[in-house]
């Protein structure tokens, strides 16, 4: 019985992230339009877009290889697994022992690897530009991410997200290193989700695209799957930040069913707050030049490194 319950809860988490991700995207678009004093698309528009794309026929370039066709599913699978592992509404789920920060970083890294390959596969110049830029950002964002992982792991004594969340919840206090890691993680999240200071998700100008340039050749269900993966990635990063730095409202190990319901509500509330803060930041800042991005991500690396350094020098930070 206990086994079935555990599996059920894990299943709920997997499908919850999948169901909520487009809604979060719709919410951010709506809120952004609202901040610009426009009306904005309805909240459910991303779902409609996905359905529409699903029904459309796939148009493939003549020289597209099997890689181009299989990459969307690889990207989606890796991103979905990563998103399902991050504690969203409960800690100590069935597969939480695999929910390791390094595993999640690696899953996202492999998703990006396939996306970059797919961008270069057809051989158009925009795809190539997009891939090379994405790889440049990745080579800067990943060291920063690893430094953040080190900082969190040194504070909590583990890299397993579920235990990290429990630790922060139990020993909640102001830590300089954790504050530095939070700022660094926000910068990395902005870069990884191709949000505004790094890349504009709503751009129509090919020369400024990064993520969009790589998926320019995709259509139909392939595009739908890639868009869904991008939405999942956004909700993944917000859940990651929430589970490490604001683990309040998470249901612990074996809570009553009612506690899980409130935890889910709390999770959706956190996503909404995170999405709104993101939009607020995006509307108050301009996109930076591509050559300025290394400095931006370098700052994230520096903060992560500083956090680790402080922890090594003195245990009280």
């Amino acid at each position: 019985m206990g086994m079935i319950r555990d599996l059920f809860l894990q299943g709920v988490q997997m499908f919850l992230v999948l169901a909520v991700a487009p809604l979060l995207l719709g919410f951010t678009r709506r809120a952004k339009a609202w901040l610009l004093r426009r009306k904005g698309p309805p909240l459910l528009q991303p779902y409609r877009d996905l359905l529409r794309l699903m029904r459309k026929e796939v148009v493939l370039a003549e020289n597209a290889s099997w890689l181009f066709r299989s990459a969307p599913y690889m990207i989606f699978a890796a991103t979905w697994v990563a998103a399902a592992l991050v504690p969203t509404f409960a800690t100590g789920l069935q597969f939480s022992w695999t929910a390791d920060l390094i595993v999640i970083t690696a899953l996202l890294g492999s998703a990006r690897f396939f996306l970059a390959l797919a961008g270069m596969d057809v051989g158009t110049s925009f795809g190539g530009i997009g891939s090379s830029r994405e790889m440049m950002f990745a080579s800067l964002a990943e060291p920063a991410m690893i430094m953040i992982v080190f900082t969190v792991a040194l504070v909590a004594g583990t890299t397993q997200l579920s235990q990290v969340a429990d630790f922060v919840f139990a020993h909640a206090s102001l830590r300089v290193s954790l504050a530095l890691a939070l700022v660094a993680l926000i910068i990395v999240a902005l870069a990884e989700n191709t949000r505004i200071p790094v890349d504009n998700p709503a751009t129509h100008l090919e020369l400024t695209m990064v993520h969009e340039a790589m998926v320019l050749e995709y259509s139909g269900r392939h595009l739908a799957v890639i868009e869904l993966a991008a939405a999942l990635k956004l909700s993944l990063y917000i859940s990651l930040i929430a589970s490490i730095f604001a683990p309040w409202g998470l249901a612990q190990g074996d809570a009553a069913p009612g506690a899980y319901v409130t935890a889910v509500v709390a999770y959706i509330g956190k996503l909404a707050v995170g999405g709104f803060l993101l939009v607020l930041f995006e509307t108050s800042i301009a996109k930076m030049r591509v050559f300025r991005v290394p400095e931006f991500l370098g700052a994230a690396f520096m903060l992560g490194f500083l956090g680790t350094l402080l922890l090594f020098v003195s245990r009280t930070f």
Binding site: S173, L174, R175, V176, A179, L180, V183, A299, M302, L303, L306, L310, T316, F317
Partner: peptide, 18 residues
Amino acid sequence: FVLDFAHTLAGFMVLVSF
């Protein structure tokens, strides 16, 4: 908490220096 808060403020000073 007293210690942590003092350190956080001082750490924030370093951050602002950067």
